[in-house]
Design a protein around this nucleic acid. Structure first.
Lengths: 343, 343
DNA sequence: GAGCGTTTTGCAAACGTATTCATTCTGTGC
DNA sequence: GCACAGAATGAATACGTTTGCAAAACGCTC
C-alpha cells in the first residue's frame, strides 16, 4: 500500500475551474469570495479529499500555530492534569501542542535547539531547566515564553505561579497552631524555585508563632526518594512531629512510609501536609491535608498570556501569582483539638 | 520588545561568501561539503544565530518528522507513563510529538481533520475513537497509524496490545482457585476492545474451573464511576465475593469504597484484582494483586512499527500481542490459603 | 601540463500555500 | 445606458528550504 501524491489547491482549482487563489480564499475565513465559487470549490475539494497543507501555510504566514510544551516528568499527577487542560485550551484556539519531555538533568540546550528550529509560536514551560543563557536565546529569537510555577531571573520571560509562599506560610501556621514543635520540610528539587518559596513560607509561618522549621530533607519530587527521606527523618527517637511536603505525591509517599513501615499514626503521632491537592489527596485512605493549587486557572492564565504575546507580536515579562486554598482534611492535627500541646 | 526578522540561510550564505546551497548542505548530514567552507558557514551561522527553518524543510522534503499522539485522558497513570516513554523514544529518533487530547465522547472527526492537515508522518493512538470510516480516511491519505491497546476492524491500521485476554484469563483462574463463587467484572468503556478481551478472558478463566462471571458493571475507566459501580455491586447481602477491575485505577477506587465506605475487608471478605500494574498498585496501602502490562515494551514496539512504516513508505496492518505478567500481592486471596472454600 | 576521476560548488527549480495588485465583474442609482 | 463603487477574481510573487544538474575545482598519474 503506497502513498499517493498529495492533492493540492491547484488540483482542486483545476477541477473546479477556478484559480488556485480562489481555492486558497475558500479556506481563509476572512477572504472575499462569492458564494457560487465557494460552492464549486468546496465540492471539488470534497471530491478529491483535499485538505490545506498547514506546513505550506505556516511557511508563508510565518506562524505555525504551534506551542512547545516542555516538562520533565509526568509522575506527579499535577502535570498530566495541567497538560490535559493546556491541550484542550490551545486546541480551542486553533493551536497545536508540541510535546517535549526533558529529564530534569537532561540536555535541555539540545532540546531547545530543536524547539527553536521547529518554529513554534510560543513556549510553555513546566519545569526549571531554563538557565539564563538559554532563556536569552529564546528572547533573542523573539519567541514568547511562559513559565508555570518556576522562575528565572530574566526580562522577557513571563511567569504564572500559584502563591507558593503563602501556601507554605499557611502550612507553617497551621502546624504551629496544631501545637507541633518539630516540623520537617520534605523539599522538592534543589533547582526548583517553587520548593524554595514553599520553604520560606513554611519557615515564616512557623516563625509567626515563635516556632521554626527544624529539618529539611530532599525528596526531589520523587516517590521513592521521598520514602527514603522519610525513613531517615523519622526513624529515630527524637523524630519530628510534623512534616510539610512540597507535593502531594511526596506527602503520600511519606504517609505510606510512616504508617506501614515505621508504624507511626497520622495525625496522632505525626501531622502531614502536602501541596497541590491532586485527586489522590482526597482518597479515603489518605484524606490528606494540603494546599490546593488552582491548576485550571494557572493554565488558563498561562494560555491567555502566551496567546496575547503571540497575537501582539510583543514579548513581555509579566508575573502572575494565583491564590492557593488550604484544604483541611485529616492528616494534620486541627488547632485546638485534643493533643495540641501549645502551652 | 519586537520580533526581529528571522535569519535565513541566504543571510548566512552572504556573510560566509558562499551560495545558499552550501549553507543548506552544511546542515544536511549526508551532503558533500568541504571542510573549509563548512567552517566558514558554521562560523557565519553562529554569528547570526542561524537555525534551519524546519517548516521550509518539511515542505520540500514532504516529511514533517512529527507524529500525532492522540489520547483521551491522562487520569489513569498508564497513559502519562506511556506518553513519557513515547516522547523520549521519538525524540531519540529525531521525531516530534504533536499532542491531541480528545475526550472519548468528543468530536474526533474534527480533530482528525486537523491531524491530517498538520502533515504528520504517523499517528499513534492510545484511545478508541477511531471508527472505521475515520480509519479509512487515514489509510486513504497514506498515513501510517498504530493503535495501542485498541482494535479496529480495518486493513491498514497496525496494532500493539498486551495480551488482554490471557490477563483476564489468569485473573479468572486465580479467583476461581481462590475459591470465589461470585465474581464481578468492573468494566471499562463499552467501546473499548481492551475491556472486552479482559472480560472474555476472565469468563473463560472462571469457566475453566467450572465457574462463571456473575455480574458486569461499567466503571468506564473513571474513578468516581468505578466507586459508584462498586457501591451498587456490593451494597447488598448477596454481594459478590470477588472483583476483577479493568484497570488499577478503578481497582483502587473499588478498594477505597469497599474498605472505607462499605466496611468490607480485602481480601478476607472480597478479593480484588486490577490491571496495568501502575505504581499505585505497589503502594503499601493497597498492595494490589494485578496484571502487569509491559508499557515500555508496548511503546517500544509501537514506535518501531510506526517508524518502520514511515521509513518504508508502505503502510501495513501488523498486530502485535505482548505477554502480561500476573503480579501476586495482597488483595486477592491466594489459592490454598485458609478460607478457600472450594470444596 | 594534459588527462581523468572525484569532490565541491552554484544555479535554478521545486514544495503548497497566502497575498498583493491589477483587472474584471456585479449591482446600484440616476 | 452610463458612471461608479465595491466585490470577486487571477496572475504572479514570496516564504526558506532541498536537491538534480552541470560546471568548476581539485587531486592524481603519466
Amino acid at each position: 500500500m503506497k502513498r499517493k501524491p498529495a492533492v493540492t489547491s491547484r488540483d482542486v482549482a483545476e477541477l473546479a475551474g477556478v484559480s488556485q487563489s480562489a481555492v486558497s480564499r475558500c479556506f481563509s475565513p476572512k477572504a472575499s469570495i462569492s458564494e457560487k465559487t465557494r460552492r464549486k470549490v468546496l465540492a471539488a475539494a470534497k471530491e478529491l479529499g483535499y485538505r490545506p497543507n498547514s506546513i505550506a501555510r505556516s511557511l508563508i504566514t510565518r506562524s505555525s500555530r504551534t506551542i512547545a510544551l516542555v516538562l520533565s516528568s509526568l509522575n506527579n499527577m499535577f502535570y498530566p492534569m495541567a497538560v490535559e487542560k493546556a491541550s484542550l485550551r490551545f486546541q480551542e484556539e486553533g493551536y497545536h501542542l508540541l510535546l517535549f519531555v526533558v529529564p530534569e538533568d537532561g540536555d535541555f540546550a539540545g532540546v531547545l535547539d530543536r524547539i527553536l528550529q521547529s518554529q513554534v509560536d510560543g513556549i510553555l514551560m513546566m519545569s526549571a531547566l531554563l538557565t539564563s543563557s538559554l532563556a536569552r536565546e529564546c528572547v533573542d529569537t523573539g519567541i514568547p515564553v511562559v513559565l508555570i510555577n518556576r522562575s528565572v531571573e530574566l526580562e522577557g520571560i513571563s511567569q504564572v505561579s500559584s502563591d507558593n509562599y503563602h501556601g507554605g506560610f499557611w502550612a507553617g501556621s497551621y502546624l504551629a497552631m496544631g501545637g507541633h514543635r518539630r516540623v520537617a520540610y520534605l523539599a522538592g528539587l534543589e533547582s526548583s524555585s517553587t520548593s524554595h518559596y514553599r520553604y520560606r513560607g513554611v519557615c515564616d509561618g512557623l516563625a509567626s508563632h515563635g516556632r521554626q522549621c527544624d529539618t529539611v530533607m530532599h525528596g526531589d519530587y520523587d516517590f521513592e526518594q521521598a520514602r527514603q527521606a522519610t525513613r531517615e527523618l523519622f526513624d529515630s527517637p527524637d523524630r519530628p512531629d510534623a512534616l510539610f511536603a512540597a507535593s502531594d505525591h511526596m506527602a503520600v509517599a511519606a504517609l505510606e512510609t510512616l504508617r506501614h513501615e515505621l508504624g507511626l499514626r497520622v495525625p496522632e503521632d505525626v501531622s502531614v501536609i502536602g501541596f497541590d491537592d491532586t485527586p489522590v489527596a482526597a482518597w479515603p485512605s489518605y484524606r490528606l491535608t494540603t494546599v490546593r493549587q488552582p491548576v485550571d486557572q494557572m493554565i488558563e492564565e498561562a494560555t491567555t498570556l502566551l496567546l496575547k504575546q503571540i497575537g501582539d507580536g510583543v514579548i513581555s515579562a509579566e508575573r502572575r501569582v494565583l491564590p492557593v486554598t488550604p484544604i483541611l482534611r485529616d492528616t494534620a492535627r486541627r488547632p485546638g483539638a485534643q493533643g495540641a500541646g501549645d502551652g
